[in-house]
C-alpha cells in the first residue's frame, strides 16, 4: 500500500492525540467502529460558551489511513461552530488525504466520529438545560 505524503505526515506526527474529561458538560465524546472490523475511533470536542469548538482530541485503533483521517478531523473541527463541524464530509477528508478507494471507509468513520461527538455534546446540553 502506497501512502500519500499527507497520510504519512499525520501517522508520524498525529495532531491532538489524547483525551478530554468525558464527564465535562462542555465536552462531547464520539466512539465509532468496532474492534472486529479493525478500526475504532474516539473523537472528543470541547465547546466554548460562544458555541465554537475550542479544542479536540482523538484516539484511534486502525490502519494508517484511519489514524490520519481522525487526526485531520480534529484539526478541522477546531475553531469551527457546531454547525460548521457538522458540515464536514468524508469526501473532503478523502480529497485532502488522497485516500485510495479501499480506504474510503476510514474517512466515513471519521465523519461518523465527528457527528457522534456533536450528538453527545447536544445530549449533554439538553440534559443540563
Amino acid at each position: 500500500m502506497a501512502y500519500s505524503e499527507k497520510v504519512l505526515d499525520h501517522y508520524n506526527n498525529p495532531r491532538n492525540v489524547g483525551a478530554l474529561p468525558k464527564d465535562d458538560p462542555t465536552v462531547g465524546t464520539g466512539v465509532v467502529g468496532a474492534p472486529e472490523c479493525g478500526d475504532v475511533m474516539k473523537l472528543q470536542i470541547k465547546v466554548g460558551a460562544n458555541g465554537v469548538i475550542e479544542d479536540a482530541r482523538f484516539k484511534t485503533f486502525g490502519c494508517g489511513s484511519a489514524i490520519a483521517s481522525s487526526s485531520l478531523a480534529t484539526e478541522w473541527v477546531k475553531g469551527k461552530t457546531l454547525a460548521e463541524a457538522a458540515a464536514i464530509r468524508n469526501t473532503d477528508i478523502v480529497q485532502e488525504l488522497n485516500l485510495p478507494p479501499i480506504k474510503i471507509h476510514c474517512s466515513v468513520l471519521a465523519e461518523d466520529a465527528i457527528r457522534a461527538a456533536l450528538a453527545d455534546f447536544a445530549a449533554k446540553q439538553e440534559k443540563n438545560a
Binding site: 492525540v17 483525551a19 474492534p35 484511534t60
Partner: peptide, 16 residues
C-alpha cells in the same frame, strides 16, 4: 497503544 482507544478502555478496566 498510547493512541488506541481500546488500550485506554482496557487500562480503565473496561471489558471490551
Amino acid at each position: 497503544r498510547e493512541m488506541s482507544p481500546l488500550w485506554e478502555m482496557v487500562q480503565e478496566g473496561i471489558d471490551l
